[in-house]
Amino acid sequence: MPKHEFEVDMPCTGCSNAVNNVLKKEDVKFEIDQPKNLVWIESDKDAEVLMEMLKKAGKQVKYNGTK
């Protein structure tokens, strides 16, 4: 399963919690590195679909590719 990397604007713990809460509802495996503003999602879903999921947290999102 591919691991997608995203840059997400998360300047505070509350921001990373918002991203965490959104992704918990989506049934995907993920990791968040709040100090580096990075989120990794393991999923067979299209990157655009994953990006839209992340945007539900109200943060700016940039797709960096698969790792």
Rank of each mutant, 00 (worst) to 15 (best):
S16I: 05
L54T: 05
M51Y: 07
D44G: 05
K56L: 13
V28Y: 00
N21C: 08
E7L: 10
S43G: 12
G58M: 13
P35C: 08
M51A: 07
Q60H: 11
E31M: 10
I32A: 06
L23A: 11
N64G: 00
K29W: 15
P35F: 12
E48C: 04
V22F: 00
I41A: 02
K67C: 09
E48D: 13
P35E: 05
G58Y: 11
S43Q: 03
K36H: 08
V22W: 01
V39M: 14
Q60T: 13
L38S: 07
K59C: 12
K56C: 08
M51W: 05
G58W: 15
H4R: 02
G65I: 01
V22A: 00
L50C: 07
E31H: 13
K67T: 06
M10S: 06
T66K: 11
N37S: 15
N37K: 06
N64A: 00
L50N: 03
N21M: 14
D46A: 03
Q34M: 15
F30P: 13
A47I: 11
T66V: 09
N17R: 06
S16H: 06
E52K: 14
T13G: 15
V61H: 05
D46C: 00
L38C: 07
G65D: 02
I32Y: 10
M53P: 15
E7R: 12
K36Y: 06
V61I: 11
P35Q: 06
N20E: 14
I32P: 15
W40C: 02
E42K: 15
V19H: 02
P35H: 02
Q34E: 14
N17A: 10
D27L: 02
K56Q: 14
C12Q: 08
M53C: 03
K25M: 12
K67L: 08
